[in-house]
Amino acid sequence: MHISEGVLSMPILAAGVAVAAAGVAVGMKKMGGDSIPKVAVLSSAFFVASLVHVPIGPTSVHLVLNGLLGILLGWSAFPAILVALFLQAMLFQFGGWTTLGINTVNMALPAVLCFYFFHGAAEGGTNRTAALAGFGAGFLSVALSGLFVAVTLALSEGAFLDAAKVIFLAHLPVMVIEGIVTSVCILFLRRVKREILTAS
């Protein structure tokens, strides 16, 4: 999911920084000083989720949860994801300064789209529509992130095209798992603590 340092070309990195800066600016504007702790909780949960390993056949993948984050935070997903990725870079050396922008865009843009597509159904409506919205959000956010990562690689250097295709295909099983997990998680939150869904 992460593109590591020193791989991408400068125009792509610069474009990533520009789009991320714009997204974070919008997110910060929509986020009152009061909501910092809430956004921080969710962005740290997003960070911890990347440590949760889910078995799939002989191997395992880690959760991404950017769809869930998008539904809960809307545009604030941009600063939340930026901060979580920065923390990952600082603590685990996954990513770093140059790829922070592009990696943020690749994960936060799908999250914001999921907010517009699925937030209404996840918050209101029946449990059935909420479950479907959750599945849609988990599935779509990972699909889009995978697509963005692949496109970023392919645009950066023609020689990355084969690797990009494989990366996108590797996201397919993750999409289904994220769909299931996000769906169950939305239903859980509706039952246990609905205000997390409505507070954004």
Binding site: V48, V184, V192, I196
Partner: peptide, 15 residues
């Protein structure tokens, strides 16, 4: 997957 989702949900609620 279902129970890992509960785990994430509980983490969110407590957090």
């Amino acid at each position: 997957y279902r129970h890992l989702a509960f785990l994430v949900g509980m983490m969110l609620v407590n957090g």
